[in-house]
């Protein structure tokens, strides 16, 4: 561990490399996390299928690339197809658990997650898949720092999708309805908002965002039917840190997590990279509950 820190002291550009890689991938986590925050905030459902939506988006992009099309076309295709899937899942399963106990929704989405994994395994096979974006690499700081162009594109795309979402939530009728429902579903219903439809759109929109994230994932890394859980956990963690309904906080938390975990991977060794993520989750949950308890005391 100390010798790894020594490397960073001896060669500061590497610090830049590690942090940059972390920040760039953090943007992809941000997408899955924002979708999760949306569903959680509006429907009070913690969706455990986030990661599987991401992986499915990746597989769809693989299929698009295999059909000889530009893999970047996979992004809209995955988003549209997953929007449809999200809608279907809401209409068949998720609508039943919206007003129920949080535990029920966890169970239901966990079940869906297993189902999706197995279906992907059946449909796309158990092979590791990835797509070459055809983009190259930039060099910086005398060649010591390499910037993978596809990661930059993924980063930019994630930010653009984030901006589009903000616009959608603020400016469109549907976005306003979603926000109204999130604030008070009963009041929204009284005011004539079809909350059932709002829920369906919210869930489908979340799936679409995850699908887009999946297209970026498969061009940056690899996908495999059983890798979804890592994205679910990271999304959950980011939302816990950032809170619901604050896109800027979600992005900041996601970038921070990306950088922190990559740093941990470098200093502690790759075996502790995910352990660090889970460890951090525990720390954050403890800290949050401690802070909440204190707030309650003050209110009293």
């Amino acid at each position: 561990m100390l010798d790894n820190i020594q490397i960073l002291i001896d060669a500061p550009p590497l610090l830049v490399q590690v942090l940059l890689d972390g920040l760039l991938v953090g943007a992809i986590f941000a997408l899955a996390a924002y979708g999760m925050a949306l569903v959680w905030g509006v429907m009070n459902v913690i969706n455990l299928t986030q990661g599987d939506f991401v992986i499915l988006g990746g597989f769809i992009t693989v299929s698009v690339a295999q059909a000889g099309l530009n893999p970047f076309l996979g992004l809209p295709v995955a988003a549209v197809l997953l929007f449809g899937l999200g809608w279907l899942l809401y209409r068949s399963v998720v609508y039943r658990v919206v007003d129920k106990d949080l535990f029920i929704s966890l169970l239901a989405t966990f079940g869906l997650s297993i189902l999706l994994q197995q279906l992907m395994n059946q449909g796309f096979g158990a092979d590791v898949q990835s797509v070459r974006s055809g983009l190259g690499t930039w060099f910086a700081l005398g060649g010591l720092v390499t910037i993978t162009q596809v990661k930059v594109v993924a980063f930019a795309t994630a930010l653009v999708i984030g901006a589009l979402l903000v616009w959608f939530m603020k400016r469109t009728r549907m976005g306003q309805a979603i926000r109204a429902t999130a604030q008070n579903a009963r009041a929204a219903r009284i005011l004539g908002i079809d909350t059932d439809r709002v829920y369906a759109v919210t869930f489908a929109l979340n799936a679409a965002i995850c699908g887009a994230a999946g297209a970026l994932v498969v061009m940056t890394w690899i996908v495999h039917p059983y890798l979804g859980i890592t994205y679910t956990v990271r999304a959950f963690m980011i939302v816990v840190v950032a809170g619901l309904g604050n896109l800027a906080a979600v992005i900041a938390a996601a970038l921070g997590l990306g950088a922190a975990e990559n740093m941990a991977g470098f200093i502690l060794g790759a075996e502790f990279q995910l352990a660090f993520v889970y460890g951090l989750l525990v720390v954050i949950l403890v800290w949050r509950s401690w802070r909440l308890a204190r707030e309650r005391k003050v209110l009293r």
Partner: peptide, 19 residues
């Protein structure tokens, strides 16, 4: 370095290799 089973990013390890 030991890679956890869910890991799909080796960039931290490879940065070390580069150094």
């Amino acid at each position: 370095d030991q890679l956890p089973p869910e890991l799909n990013d080796m960039s931290a390890t490879l940065t070390k290799v580069k150094a």
